[in-house]
Design a binder for these strands. Structure first.
Length: 789
RNA sequence: GGUCCUAUAGUCUAUCGGUAGAACACCUCGUUUACACCGAGGAAGGCAAGGUUCGACUCCUUGUAGGACCACCA
């Protein structure tokens, strides 16, 4: 394709290039490479919906990184993963096919999930290909950098293998604890899956009695249905109103239970009436309180969200109905002094939107509390871009209070490879994929009792084994993405050579999940930090600055922008709009369309430069040397910034170079010398101009290549340069004086202004202009460029 | 409540303590051997109050506004 035949940069051109790139696997990883390896632990996008422009832009940034590192001589691993496990797929399958796992059975439900996954369009991959993302491969397989799926047996068996090892080491245990329970999805969830929402609720002021004095006390609560689980009534020790109640006994309304009254500084004098009922299922801090006070927790809510026998007359009712009923009862008995509407910050399940309940259930836990300091230490060895992002991780580490509950009572996820018989637990062997609910344990599987090995399955004849039906939290598989990428447990030699991974790029909102869990899991497997660098991106927002989200309905479809403006305009815009690791980027179509102009400018400049043959190296004139020095210096600064994941400042400067320095001034000045039709200049001088035109422009193409690889490589192709294989230019020391170029620009502007004011056409001659002293060295060029007399 | 970030032209965004610079939009003029998706020119800007300094958009304090993260709200 010759650029001379092209009028404008357009999406038909792009299609030809990206189609070719996608099928030809140009960036295949060479397993025998002697080069240093640069590996990018790409976030695997969730496949239930096509990616939106915000996500798409983050992959453009990763592509900048990958292409730059290839130029710097690294063998790059930049895999495309597809995240297919977990609740979003299950919920979509329920909706699409009207199936229910509880009604239709596990096998049928899993089939429905698989069917949905097949139907899920390949639109995301198509978007990546059209954007020119240089993934190591667009094909599935076992080669390094191949497309991987988190629900494939190959992936799941590694997830299970890590589970098995951790279990055997005693780092995973089962415990019957109070957990965050999602009543809608019927599963336990982790703290990190909870979000808080302000929900209007009613503060009920309920009358209690004091046994010893018979006086009435009023306690405010949003959860009157939990009065039955109250274990203690507390007030603040500084609160004079209640001082006399210390050690006395409260009688709960309706239930008439005797409950001790004590002072405790967790009670807030300002809130409600200052006197509080402590229930064993309000939230996690209540649970902690019960532990500290050595109180026996009473759980009044069943796993299906109904009240149990502890709730007495409320038994069998759903939580909300129970609340209404008890309020009515209190009203009837005149035990409700008043009600107040408040907004209450309520824990909500991030996945289903249901209000979290706290319910006691046996679940598997992965130990994490005892590794917090180790994680802090390895995190200290990792470079964060930007530096500030480290704090988000630190804050999260500080707030981890319990081990990680890793079992889920769901279906489309990695099964837990265990079989149970009474107190005995049989464990699968690592290296196989297991679905225990439909398989039997093999004879040589190890058997554990209370965390200790007691033999193998074959030793216990005639025992009936039940396959574990629970599955793993999907973060258990996402958190080994870098291990999978580097062939952990499948190619030991390669893993040893390539671990730790070089870069984890990801969003700030999943630092406490994906990043933290990966650090933990990597540490448990290898005792090392699993990354050298972590690059944290902010958000792409809509025009108004709001974060894009499906629920808000403000998502922009990348396919639409690709059709209108093409990939190169989007990528150029993404680099020039701001530094995504430092600030949110507002997605504005106007700005993207403006970058199309720059692409056309590049084409036109290419056409002009190509009017002249590039002479072999010759002696440069003063002016040409000055501009060559300038771009050598710009090369150095660009290299430094790219190396620190900053593509923004170089992109700005390179664009300025193109428009303001190269096109508007350098070309205008040397045009006549390059043509040299009237032989005003020597052959040598003319060749110097021609050489420099090519040199500057080629360098521009090389430096811009990671950002806009299509247009730059097409133009470079015409010049016999393959940018996909091109090395980043060596850094040359210069004595470049920035000042002089600014002076020249100023001089040119003044002459143009002068001619305009005097009504002289730009090409006609003008009298009486003096060339400033410091520009004497460039006199000939300036006289000729402006036709000075 | 805690921690942190940001505040510059109509919009968006730069700038080592020394004349505030682009882009988009707007206005005027122009067609010049690559480009009218162009060229030249123009109008238009530092949140507020203090402080440090010869000098502050830049550093400090406070306030105001917006945003982020964390914790908690019986």
């Amino acid at each position: 394709m010759a650029i001379a035949d092209v009028k404008n940069w357009n999406i038909e051109l792009e299609k030809k290039i990206t189609d070719k790139w996608k099928v030809s696997e140009l960036f295949k990883f060479d397993i025998k490479t002697k080069k240093k390896i640069y590996s990018i632990d790409t976030p695997p996008p969730y496949v239930n919906a096509p990616i939106h422009i915000g996500q798409a832009i983050t992959y453009c940034y990763m592509d900048f990184f990958a292409r730059y590192r290839r130029m710097k001589g690294f063998e790059v691993i930049f895999p495309l993963g597809l995240d297919r496990n977990g609740l979003p797929i299950e919920m979509a399958a329920e909706k699409a096919f009207g199936v229910s796992p509880f009604r239709d059975g596990r096998d049928k439900f899993i089939e429905a999930c698989k069917k949905l996954l097949e139907q899920t369009s390949s639109e995301t991959q198509d978007t990546f290909a059209k954007l020119g993302i240089s993934f190591t491969s667009y094909k599935e397989g076992n080669h390094v950098g191949a497309v991987y799926k988190t629900d494939s047996p190959d992936y799941r068996k590694i997830t299970q293998a890590t589970f098995i090892e951790l279990f055997r080491k005693g780092l995973i245990y089962e415990d019957n604890r109070i957990n965050n329970w999602d009543p809608k999805l019927q599963t336990t969830i982790a703290d990190s899956e909870i979000e808080y929402k302000d929900i209007p609720s009613t503060f009920n002021f309920v009358k209690w009695k004091v046994k010893e004095t018979g006086e009435e006390i009023i306690i405010a609560t949003t959860r009157p249905e939990l009065i039955c689980t109250c274990g203690m009534v507390i007030f603040n020790p500084t609160d004079k109103r209640y001082k006399h109640l210390e050690g006395k006994t409260a009688i709960s309304p309706i239930f008439n239970k005797e409950i001790p009254i004590k002072s405790n500084k967790t009670a807030d004098v300002e809130k409600g009436t200052g006197i509080v009922m402590m229930c064993s299922a309000g939230d996690l801090s209540d649970i902690q309180f019960f532990r500290e006070q050595n109180l026996e927790p009473k759980i009044a809510i069943n796993i299906d969200g109904t009240m149990n026998e502890h709730a007495g007359i409320l038994e069998g009712l759903k939580v909300k109905d129970a609340r209404n009923k008890i309020i009515e009862l209190l009203k009837e008995k005149k035990l409700l002094s008043r009600q107040e509407q408040i907004t209450h910050r309520t824990p909500i399940s991030e996945r289903s939107g249901a209000e979290i309940e706290f319910i006691q259930m046996p679940e598997f836990y992965l130990k994490q509390i005892e590794f917090k300091d180790d994680i802090r230490k390895i995190a200290d060895k990792i470079n964060f871009f930007p530096k500030e992002a480290r704090k988000i991780l630190d804050d999260w580490l500080d707030s981890i209070k319990i081990d990680w509950p890793i079992s889920r009572r769901r279906f489309y996820a990695t099964p837990i490879p265990l079989w149970i018989s009474g107190e005995l637990i049989a464990v699968g062997k690592s290296g196989e994929y297991y679905e225990p609910w439909k398989e039997s344990p093999k004879k040589d599987f190890e058997v554990f009792k209370n965390g200790k090995k007691t033999g193998v399955v074959g030793d216990f004849k005639d025992l009936k084994w039940e396959g574990e039906t629970r599955v793993l939290d999907t973060w258990m598989d996402s958190s080994i993405s870098e291990l999978i990428m580097l062939k952990y447990k499948t190619d030991d030699e390669f893993f040893k050579k390539s671990y730790p991974a070089t870069l984890r790029p990801q969003g700030k909102e999943i630092i406490r999940t994906w990043l933290y869990y990966t650090l933990l899991r990597g540490y448990l497997e290898t005792k090392k930090p699993c990354f050298k660098d972590v690059w944290i991106n902010q958000h792409i927002t809509d025009k108004q600055g709001y974060k894009m989200s499906k629920s808000k309905g403000n998502v922009v479809d990348p396919q639409k922008l690709l059709k209108l403006y093409g990939a190169e305009a989007i990528r150029l815009w993404a680099s020039i709009e701001g530094d995504l690791s430092k600030q949110d980027l507002k997605c504005s179509e106007e700005k993207i369309s403006a970058e199309v102009k720059t692409l056309n400018k590049i084409i036109n400049v290419a056409k002009f430069v190509n009017l002249f043959e590039k002479p072999s190296r010759i002696k440069l004139t003063n002016l040409d040397k000055l501009f060559v020095d300038y771009i050598e210096d710009l090369t150095k600064r660009t290299d430094e910034s790219y190396g620190n994941y900053d593509f923004y400042h170089p992109a700005l400067e390179l664009r300025r170079f193109l428009w303001e320095i190269f096109a508007s001034h350098y070309i205008e000045i040397v045009k006549s010398r390059a043509y040299n039709q009237e032989n005003k200049f020597s052959k040598e001088e003319s060749n110097s101009a021609r050489y420099t035109l090519h040199y500057l422009f080629e360098r521009f193409l090389v430096l811009m290549y990671p950002i806009i690889p299509q247009i730059t490589s097409v133009i470079a192709d015409d010049k016999g340069i393959n940018l996909l294989k091109e090395k980043f230019p060596a850094i040359v020391k210069t004595k470049y004086e920035f000042n002089l170029i600014e002076k020249i620009i100023e001089f040119n502007s003044n002459v143009w202004k002068d001619k305009k004011e005097k009504g002289i056409s730009l090409r006609n001659e003008i009298e009486g202009i003096k060339i400033p002293k410091e520009l004497k060295a460039f006199e000939n060029d300036l006289i000729s460029a402006h036709n000075l007399k």
